[in-house]
């Protein structure tokens, strides 16, 4: 694989030519926040938190779906980017009903910790407070669209790793929602294998183990990599 050289935040970085800007930046020790991205799943570019500035390109690019190029000049930390990232998190918080204090994921949530990291101390937009019913019909897991940020990690892991494709997305814009089994109750969806991978990759409290109480749910996201390359690396027992 040929290697290219690019500049990230004034630092010369070399990377294999099939890498994304996000991967190259993280390898070089730069932190770029992400929510929809998860190692082991196809990049999606949906959450827009990984936006970066690339010299010569008028618009901002999602680094998780932008391939590195020779001579590229990238900035990952500018005031403009910080403002956009903050705005994105605020919009996510305003769109659904994220009441952290009484959420099963309180203290372990990716959205919550990102908001704290970005200094989101208040939300400038009106809360939409949509009326979304919780689906607790599945024997093992519960889906709460109120905490969902539509990152589609669940859909991708169900399709790409488990191969069931029980989960999908329906509707557009503000009416967009995650569905199970072609918009049936989860408990009635025959394509669900009850493997629970969707729960483990969900960044928020939108998918959780049934019966979890407030702040009790913790997720094991690293297991995904083990599923994918444990055999190659001869790691037979997964542990954190």
């Amino acid at each position: 694989m040929p290697v290219v050289t690019l500049t990230i935040n004034d630092k010369l970085v070399s990377a294999q030519s099939d890498k994304t800007v996000l991967e190259a930046a993280r390898d070089a020790g730069f932190e770029i926040p992400t929510l929809c991205h998860l190692e082991g799943l196809t990049p999606r570019g949906g959450c827009r938190l990984c936006l970066v500035e690339v010299e010569g390109v008028p618009r901002l690019l999602a680094s998780c779906v932008t391939q590195v190029q020779e001579g590229m000049v990238v900035r990952t930390e500018t005031e403009r980017l910080h403002n956009y990232r903050k705005m994105m998190v605020e919009l996510l918080l305003a769109e659904r009903n994220h009441v952290c204090a009484v959420c099963v994921m309180n203290g372990h949530c990716e959205l919550q910790s990102l908001a704290a990291k970005l200094g989101v101390d208040h939300v400038r937009y009106d809360y939409l407070c949509p009326d979304l019913p919780v689906d607790a019909s599945h024997e093992r897991n519960t889906r709460d669209p109120n905490r969902c940020i539509l990152c589609a990690r669940c859909i991708r892991v169900c399709d790409e790793v488990e191969g069931a494709h029980c989960l999908d997305m329906m509707g557009r814009g503000i009416h967009c929602n995650i569905i199970t089994g072609m918009n049936q109750e989860w408990g009635k969806a025959r394509s669900c294998t009850a493997c629970g991978k969707c729960v483990q990759v969900c960044p928020t409290g939108a998918l959780f183990k049934k019966g979890s109480s407030v702040a009790e749910m913790e997720k094991q996201r690293e297991f995904l990599i083990w599923i994918l390359d444990g055999r190659d690396k001869k790691v037979w027992h997964w542990s954190r």
């Binding site: 204090a101 009484v102 099963v104 019913p133 919780v134 607790a136 519960t142 049934k210 019966g211 979890s212 109480s213 407030v214 702040a215």
Partner: peptide
């Protein structure tokens, strides 16, 4: 209303 019952001890105590 609309929440799942196992969340209730956590909600009510807050």
């Amino acid at each position: 209303e609309g929440r799942t019952y196992p969340e209730m001890p956590g909600i009510t105590m807050r």
